[in-house]
């Protein structure tokens, strides 16, 4: 564990708390992509199967369970609980059908694992989750773009998620310098870089709006 990874994890936790606060305070899920949440749940469930096979630390297991539980709760709120359910507008969240994200990632993961000779289902699903995580934020960014004017807490939510990914890149740099037995995984680096790059545009407008103290509005 290093400071960048810990700060990244905390940023991830803060983003989830901000999202919960955002849902509760506005009593609606307008501007929030249910698809992104569902993709994240698929990512967590497929990646954290090692909860049953490998114990790393209490911290590690706790966080995994917390991510799965909180994301499940958010999805349940938007799908089944009032007033979120009736206010949720699926037509605003139409970008990227889940199967068009899942299928290519599954194919790519299968291919990558075949090449590497990792044939256990847990390895293949782990690799799949690495690819899928890079795409998971896309529907949310698309929803932001549709409404253009981004509500404050929603903006913070995406900011903290992006910060988490940025800090993970610093964590990899740190680990490759200071951990003697650290093994590079280029698939993780590339999808991590792609994922972070997706946030860059949003970050720019977020920082500018904070600097000038105005509302966060995205260009068309």
């Amino acid at each position: 564990m290093n400071i960048f990874r810990f700060a990244g994890d905390m940023s991830h936790v803060v983003s989830i708390l901000v999202l919960l606060l955002r849902l509760r305070s506005s009593k609606s899920a307008v501007g929030i992509s249910l698809k992104t949440q569902e993709l994240f749940l698929i990512v967590f469930v497929t990646r954290y199967l090692d909860l049953f096979t490998t114990f790393y630390s209490l911290y590690n297991s706790f966080m995994k369970v917390a991510y799965i539980a909180s994301t499940t709760y958010i999805i349940w709120m938007i799908r089944f609980q009032e007033p979120y359910k009736s206010k949720y507008d699926a037509s605003q969240d139409s970008f990227l059908h889940i199967k068009f994200a899942v299928a290519p990632c599954a194919g790519l993961a299968l291919f990558a694992c075949l090449v590497k000779g990792e044939l256990s289902p847990i390895d293949i699903l782990w690799t799949f989750s690495i690819f899928l995580e890079a795409l998971a934020i896309v529907p949310q960014l698309f929803v932001l773009q549709r409404y253009r004017e981004v509500e404050n807490l929603t903006g913070h939510y995406v900011f903290f998620l992006g910060a988490y990914r940025g800090l993970y890149i610093l964590n990899w740099v740190y680990r490759s310098y200071y951990e003697q037995f650290y093994r590079h995984n280029w698939l993780v680096y590339v999808s991590g870089a792609v994922q972070t790059a997706l946030y860059v545009d949003f970050f720019y407008y977020y920082v500018v709006s904070k600097y000038y103290g105005g509302k966060l509005t995205l260009p068309t």
Binding site: T54, N60, R183
Partner: peptide, 10 residues
């Protein structure tokens, strides 16, 4: 073991 790379991350 090759498969353990980075798998301690969240």
């Amino acid at each position: 073991k090759v498969t353990e790379e980075m798998k301690d991350e969240l």
